[in-house]
Amino acid sequence: MNQLPASAKSVPATMGQTIYPEPYASQVKGRLKRKLGDYFGLTQFGVNLTHLSPGAVSALTHSHSKQDEFIFVLEGFPTLLLGAEEFQLSPGDCCGFKAGTGIAHQLVNRSSETVTYLEMGDRTPGDQVEYPNNDLKATQTINGAWILTHKDDRPY
Rank of each mutant, 00 (worst) to 15 (best):
L4G: 07
P21Q: 06
F70K: 02
K29E: 01
E119Q: 02
G37E: 09
L32M: 03
E113V: 01
T141C: 14
P12E: 10
P5Q: 13
G30L: 09
H64K: 11
N133W: 15
F70D: 00
L89E: 01
E130K: 10
K9Y: 06
L74I: 09
H51Y: 04
E86S: 05
K33E: 02
E113P: 09
A138L: 14
F70H: 07
Q27C: 00
H51E: 14
L136M: 14
G55K: 10
L4F: 15
L136T: 03
N143E: 11
V108S: 09
E69T: 00
Q67H: 06
Q27M: 08
H62M: 08
P78L: 12
T139S: 14
I71T: 01
L32P: 00
G76C: 02
T114L: 06
T50S: 05
G92K: 14
I142H: 12
G92I: 08
Q88N: 05
F70V: 01
V47P: 04
F72S: 11
Y156G: 03
L118D: 01
L42N: 10
R110Y: 10
E75L: 03
M15W: 09
V115G: 02
P125N: 03
L118Y: 05
R110H: 15
R154K: 03
T124R: 14
L81K: 07
F97L: 02
L148D: 05
G102T: 02
V11Q: 07
A59F: 13
L107Y: 08
S58T: 04
S111Y: 15
F97W: 04
G37H: 12
N134C: 06
T149N: 14
S111L: 05
G41S: 12
T50Y: 08
K35L: 03
K98M: 15
K66G: 03
K35C: 00
A56H: 09
V11L: 05
S90H: 15
G83C: 03
S58Q: 10
T101M: 09
E86H: 07
